[in-house]
């Protein structure tokens, strides 16, 4: 008999959406590359100076990209449906389950995210207190949802630029919408690289939670005096992980705050507690 503290970190739905999205997005990026090859005019640079061409021939050859435009389009226009449906269900679930409380950045997230970055670069000791995600994760995981929405919108704009002419105009015209669509894809790839490194560094216990849903709680969550720039760090006096109440109430929907029992250290103005979007 050995009781352990575990937290139900990721609901089944979130795990499902995550692991469906991963291969679907991979196919979208790959088939998008087959399409992009047909007119591969983008580069980083200025004037005649090119720092990085998208993409070098060796890159295309290594991935067997050339002369597969038709195939790329066909795969892209099948998997776009899966990407859209899975993404829409994820957003709906996150909205209605309340899971958004642990995802969206709050008032302090941007300051704290900087502390997280400094910590991860070994320039700072200790992390600000967190719930499911730290502030940098909140920003990154929320941003990637915005990216997904952006890919859908810019994708539709270049898919049906006449029937959805207003959308194409909204995206800055056909050529610019294509640039945005491409840039968002580069964004996914960069996100993916950082994500993989961070997951590797975070270790097995963290990773397996995205499969099993549960994560065994390590005894003490780090608490840092430096986070005392906020007024509420003294509030955690019970045996829970040391999480200041503002970290919860600071992002609580007003209705939920009313239903909560008992209000421990509630913000007197719950109306102002909207997440900073």
């Amino acid at each position: 008999m050995s009781l352990q503290r575990a937290i139900k970190k990721h609901p089944l739905a979130i795990r499902w959406f995550h692991w469906v999205n991963f291969p679907v997005l991979a196919v979208m990026v790959w088939s998008g590359l087959l399409i992009y090859w047909g007119n591969d005019v983008y580069r980083l640079g200025w004037g005649d100076k090119t720092l990085l061409k998208f993409f070098p021939q060796s890159f295309y050859d290594a991935l067997n990209v050339p002369f597969r435009l038709a195939q790329g389009m066909a795969f892209h226009f099948l998997f776009m449906w899966l990407f859209f449906i899975n993404g829409a269900l994820y957003v709906l679930y996150t909205m209605f389950s309340g899971e958004w409380r642990f995802l969206l950045p709050g008032r302090h997230s941007f300051r704290e995210a900087w502390q997280v970055v400094l910590h991860d670069l070994h320039l700072r000791k200790g992390l600000p207190p967190q719930e499911k995600y730290n502030a940098a994760q909140r920003i990154a995981y929320s941003a990637i949802v915005v990216f997904g929405f952006g890919s859908l919108v810019t994708g539709l704009a270049i898919y049906k630029p006449i029937q959805l002419g207003w959308l194409c105009t909204l995206c800055g015209g056909y050529a610019f919408a294509r640039i945005l669509h491409f840039a968002l894809t580069i964004g996914y790839v960069l996100f993916f690289m950082v994500h993989i490194i961070q997951v590797l560094l975070a270790g097995w216990n963290n990773f397996q939670a995205m499969v099993s849903g549960i994560e065994v709680v390590k005894e003490v969550l780090p608490v840092v005096a430096a986070s005392a720039t906020g007024p509420d760090t003294e509030s955690a006096s019970d045996d829970r992980p040391h999480i200041p109440d503002t970290m919860e109430t600071g992002i609580t929907h007003p209705e939920a705050a009313i239903n909560d029992l008992p209000p421990v250290n509630d913000n007197p103005n719950p109306e102002t507690n909207e997440p900073a979007l």
Binding site: M1, S2, L3, Q4, R5, A6, I7, K8, K9, G98, R101, F102, E131, K132, I214, V217, R240, P241, I243, E248, T252, A256, N259, D260, L261, V264
Partner: peptide, 16 residues
Amino acid sequence: MRKNSFSSREVQMEGK
């Protein structure tokens, strides 16, 4: 324990 708090998802489970 707050209904919507993350810590409310904590459970005690046997290792096995």
